[in-house]
Design a protein around this nucleic acid. Structure first.
Lengths: 231, 231
DNA sequence: CTTGAGGTTTTGGGTGACCAAAACGTAGAT
DNA sequence: ATCTACGTTTTGGTCACCCAAAACCTCAAG
């Protein structure tokens, strides 16, 4: 498959459509121009223009006044863009020492101009990382979809999982999470789940921690295969 | 000094004017539009337009039909751009393992989008290198001029120096130089200099090597303070 | 002192990106 | 069934970039 070439804003638009139409948003969900414009920080007219350019080239399916979804080629391109972004984030955190929640902001500035070749070498130099610094998976080069992580609140007692915190999380929430030891990549084990949307009791780094439902729905987890082997 | 902001081609143009008006090209030399267009791989009309944009903002002094030179602000900006380029080259060679003559080509692709902040961290992560992989000095952030290196042929017997090879060197010449052990950063000591534009006899890595005048004018050296202490 | 060659600038034309505001569609409320 | 509110698309304008080709300078040769 010969690599199609996209401009910076086309790539950002692909990523945004991908996120807005992820399965968790409802099956067959379409991205609306206004939401896209907000996500991209751009006027609605500009969003429309970019969508049309993508649709003309066969990367998106645009039903005017209704919404837009990605074609399989568009989804492939979006996944590549996300892979690129996450690799650059890892570079910023692993090689330059940026905090995981700073990397995001800076990666966007230059990821689009990085030659593919350099991305590939960077990936190897970083020891082929499997997640970005937020804890989300880095997709394979030709992968068509990125597995979605379940929220922490979806775990059941006995489950062991690795924490992932979205970049869009409110900084105040991030700070609170840090006091609980809930940072990306940290392993947690669910001890109890209280009924009626009650809190979770977790084992974090050896200490017991309680987390409310609202917070436990805002962060995500990579479930580990090895379940708890308790007495 | 608040950082002026330049587009990609403006920065490339600043670098090109800087190079074309370096003291070694003759004092008070002006860069001609055609040469600039060639250096940038752009049509003459495009070069004129970019020059005018720079001149309007006070970074260049353009005398129509005559030539262009940089103002002090323009020179400062050009030096910053060169510093950026050389740091990115070092990243490509030191962290990603690219050969010194490949780094050049790739650096140009994304150096312009790199946030200043990231450049600064990268410089530190690379252990504050003093030269680019070609062997040329990385200027200080606020330096107004980059010291020019003398050609190898300017050395005299007894001198010890570090080799620098321009990126623009013919690949066949680079290959030939490699057979002599003349790679960027290598230390050489001049043993003899034959008269009437005759060859140099060097000590390279313990072996005696002879280099003709034409080649010895194409590569450059950083002279070491410690002169030869021979018997 | 004219003339022309060679280099420079201008002009006209195209793309991608952006915005503000006008025009337009869709769907819910009367 | 119309009206209207809201969101979307279109229109008109700006800017950086690029090119090809026309118009234009400059200077040196005749």
């Amino acid at each position: 498959m010969l690599q199609a070439t996209f401009s910076k804003s086309e790539r950002e638009t692909l990523k945004a459509i991908y996120r807005l139409t992820a399965p968790s948003k409802g099956l067959g969900a379409e991205a609306h121009t206004g939401d896209l414009a907000d996500a991209l920080g751009v006027s609605p007219g500009t969003a429309t223009a970019t969508i049309k350019r993508l649709a003309d080239r066969g990367f998106a399916d645009h039903k005017p006044y209704r919404g837009v979804v990605l074609t399989p080629q568009g989804r492939q391109a979006a996944v590549s863009a996300i892979r690129r972004h996450r690799i650059v984030e890892r570079f910023l955190s692993d090689m330059l020492g940026y905090a995981w929640n700073e990397a995001d902001r800076l990666a966007g500035a230059f990821e689009h101009e990085l030659p593919q070749e350099v991305e590939d070498r960077l990936f190897v130099a970083l020891h082929r990382p499997s997640t970005c610094p937020h804890g989300f998976p880095i997709p394979e080069p030709e992968e068509a979809d990125i597995p979605e992580l379940p929220p922490l609140y979806a775990l059941e007692p006995g489950d062991v999982a690795e924490v992932a915190v979205p970049g869009s999380t409110d900084p105040a929430v991030v700070e609170f999470l840090a006091t609980l030891g809930l940072r990306p990549g940290v392993l947690v084990e669910v001890r109890e789940k209280h009924p009626f949307d009650g809190p979770l009791v977790l084992l974090v780094d050896g200490s017991a921690r309680t987390v409310g439902e609202r917070i436990a729905r805002q962060i995500y987890v990579r479930k580990q295969e090895n379940r708890k082997e308790s007495a």
